[in-house]
Computed example of a mutant assay.
Amino acid sequence: MTVANQARDSLVLPTAEISTSPSSGPVLVQVPVWLWVDDGTWRPVSAQASVPGGSVSVTAAPRTARWSMGDGTTVTCDGPGVPFDLGRDDPAGESPECGHTYRRASVGASQGVYAVRLAVTWTVTWESSEGGGGELDPLVTSTAAELEVVESQGLVESTG
């Protein structure tokens, strides 16, 4: 098990980038925000450690994405989410896998933005060249971004 932990400690896990739709400009209150992680970072990663007479292979696989949205809400997704595609998806529609709808503007938040944090939990398994194997403690990677959330104001003019 010590060799498996050494291999686990040598894993270099990618840091997921936070992707949202809309991707630029402010987010509107009451409009669904799509959340996803790039497929390039949502993939298994392996490492090996050798000992006299054998080796241990360790693989970490992303399992869940936990989004802390900055407004007190947490969204947990069992996968990377679905990237928004303007040609396919309705900008006012909800994500089929991972999303959030803000109910309040970020005006009162720190610096006028919500601090969004993403934590990806990785399950870690090991396998010995001699046939043993099992599961190790999970790993977690995290990253953060800021989202400005605003309210859209309507203006009614009298023509009379």
Score class of each variant (00 low, 15 high):
Q48C: 07
L155P: 01
V156A: 10
T123S: 13
G112C: 09
V140D: 06
A144C: 02
F84D: 02
T2C: 03
G70L: 08
M69N: 03
G79Q: 05
H100M: 05
D38Q: 13
V107Q: 06
P83D: 03
C98V: 10
A92S: 15
S10L: 03
V75M: 04
D90A: 10
H100R: 03
G154P: 06
S106M: 13
A60E: 02
R117C: 00
P96K: 12
Q48Y: 03
A105E: 13
Q30T: 15
A105Y: 03
G25M: 11
L147N: 00
E157P: 00
T143S: 14
R66T: 15
E94S: 15
W42S: 07
G53R: 03
D85T: 14
A16W: 02
G133E: 01
T143Y: 10
S46G: 05
S128R: 05
V150L: 13
E130C: 03
R117E: 08
T73N: 15
A115Y: 00
E135D: 09
T159N: 04
I18S: 03
W34M: 07
D137W: 06
L28V: 07
Y114F: 15
S23I: 04
V29L: 10
W126E: 05
M1N: 08
T121I: 10
W126M: 11
A144R: 10
E17S: 15
P52W: 01
V51L: 12
G112W: 09
F84Q: 00
S57Q: 12
P26D: 05
A92M: 13
L139W: 12
V33R: 05
E148H: 08
S57A: 11
A16N: 05
V82S: 04
G131I: 10
P80D: 00
A145P: 11
L155Q: 07
T101Y: 01
S152G: 08
E135V: 14
Q111L: 14
T73L: 14
V124A: 02
L86C: 02
T59V: 10
G70R: 02
L35G: 09
G54T: 14
V150G: 01
R8V: 10
T123W: 01
R88A: 15
A60W: 01
A61I: 09
M1Q: 08
Y102H: 14
R103D: 08
P91M: 01
P44F: 11
P14Y: 12
R104K: 15
S128M: 04
A4E: 04
A60D: 01
R66H: 00
D78R: 13
Y114M: 08
V140W: 05
P96N: 11
G133S: 02
W36Q: 03
V56P: 11
S152K: 04
P22M: 09
S10H: 02
G81I: 02
S129E: 05
E151L: 09
Y102P: 12
S128W: 06
G131D: 09
C77E: 09
P22W: 08
T59Y: 00
V27R: 04
C98P: 09
P80F: 01
R43K: 15
G108T: 13
S21M: 04
T15G: 10
P32M: 04
V27F: 00
L136V: 12
M1F: 11
S19Y: 06
A7T: 15
V124R: 01
Y114D: 05
N5T: 14
D137H: 11
